[in-house]
Design a protein around this nucleic acid. Sequence first.
DNA 1: TCTTGCCTATCTACTAGTAGGTAAGTATAT
DNA 2: ATATACTTACCTACTAGTAGATAGGCAAGA
Lengths: 186, 186
Amino acid sequence: MTTKDTIIKLASDLILEKGFNAFSFYDLSEKMGIKTASIHYHFPSKTDLGIAVIRQQSESFIALQAATESKDALSKLEAFFSIYIRHKSQGKVCLVGSLCTDLYSLDPAIEKELKPVVEGILQWVTDILKEGKRKGVFHFSAAPRTKALLLITNMLGILQVSRITGKTDFNEVRTALLKELKTKKE
Amino acid sequence: MTTKDTIIKLASDLILEKGFNAFSFYDLSEKMGIKTASIHYHFPSKTDLGIAVIRQQSESFIALQAATESKDALSKLEAFFSIYIRHKSQGKVCLVGSLCTDLYSLDPAIEKELKPVVEGILQWVTDILKEGKRKGVFHFSAAPRTKALLLITNMLGILQVSRITGKTDFNEVRTALLKELKTKKE
DNA sequence: TCTTGCCTATCTACTAGTAGGTAAGTATAT
DNA sequence: ATATACTTACCTACTAGTAGATAGGCAAGA
C-alpha cells in the first residue's frame, strides 16, 4: 500500500471513529512515523484529504455493487448490510453519518463530494428493494425510495445509538429489518 | 433568561448545527458580547458545558413526556416526532446523533451523562408503542423496544441524511412511519 | 447609618498547546 | 536532471484554560 493510500485509510478510520473535526494531521503523522508536512505533500489541505476519503469509500461501494450485480435481491441487501456490520465490529459509525453531523462546519467542497455518493447509495438500495418486491421476496408498502431511506437511516442511526445502548442492539435492529422485509402482509 | 441559560442555549444550538468539536468558547463569547473567561466562570470546562446542555435537553424531554402523559398513544408519538420536526426546521440534527458520532473523541463524562438520557428516551418510545399496540392503534410485529430503536434511528438518521438529500425527505420518512404504524397487517 | 466584607459576574492579560499550512532544502530513483 | 517523497524549520491562528483585578450588590455588625 502506498503512503497516500495509508493516509486515506488512517484518516478514514479516524473520521469514522472520532469525527472529522477530532482528528489532525499530527494524529496521522504519529501513527505513520512521518511528519505532518509530508502529509501535506500528498494532500495540500485537510479538505483534500476528506474528499479523498469520500472517493475511496464511494469506490468500495461501487465495487460491492458490481460484485453482487448478478445475485438475488436478498444477497444484495445482505451485502449492503455487511458494510455496517464491519463498521460496527470496529466501533465505527458510517461516513455519511459522521460527515453529515459535522457538515455545516466543513468546507462546502465536502458536501459537494458527498452528495452524489449518498444519492448513489440511495439509488442502489432503492433498486434492490424494487427488484425484491418484483420477485416477491420483499414485502413493503411505502415507496421504494422511501423504504430505502428508512433502511439506510436505521443502519446509520443504530451504528451511532448502539455506542450508548450496547452493541447487541445493532444485530437486533438488523435482524428485525430483514425479518420484516421478508414477511408477507395483508 | 440568565447568562448561564443563554450560554447553554447557544452551545446547544452550535452542537446541533456544527458538532461539539466545531464550536469554541470564542464563538459563544462573540455571540453574547462577553469574554471567554466569563463563560469559564459559569462552566469551568467545555465538558461541564456539554453536560449542562445534555441535562437541559433531558429536562425538556421529561417535560414533554409529562405534558402528554394523559394523552393517547398517537398523540404521544406525534409529540415525540415534534422534537425532530423542530430540529429539522432549523437545519439541526439531534443531540444524541451529534454527540454519538463524536463520542470517542469526548471526555468520558459526556458519555456517562448521555447514557441515561438515551435509555430514558428509548423507554418512553417503547412504552408509547406498547400502549398503542394494546389499544389497537399501532400495528407492528417486532419487539416494542426493537421497534422503538427503529423509529428513533429513523428520525435521528433522516435529520442527518436529509441535509444532503433534501429537506422534503424528512417529511416523507415521518409520514411513512406513521402510516405504517397505523396500518393493520395479516 | 456607616462600614466591613463577602459574593457574583465580569474584565484584562496571559499561558501552553495544537491546529492547518508553507517554504526551502535533501535524498533517492529513474 | 528531473520528479518523487520526504525533512527541517517555521508561521499564523486558534484552542481551552488560568490568574488577578474590578465593580456592583447585599447583608451583618458596630
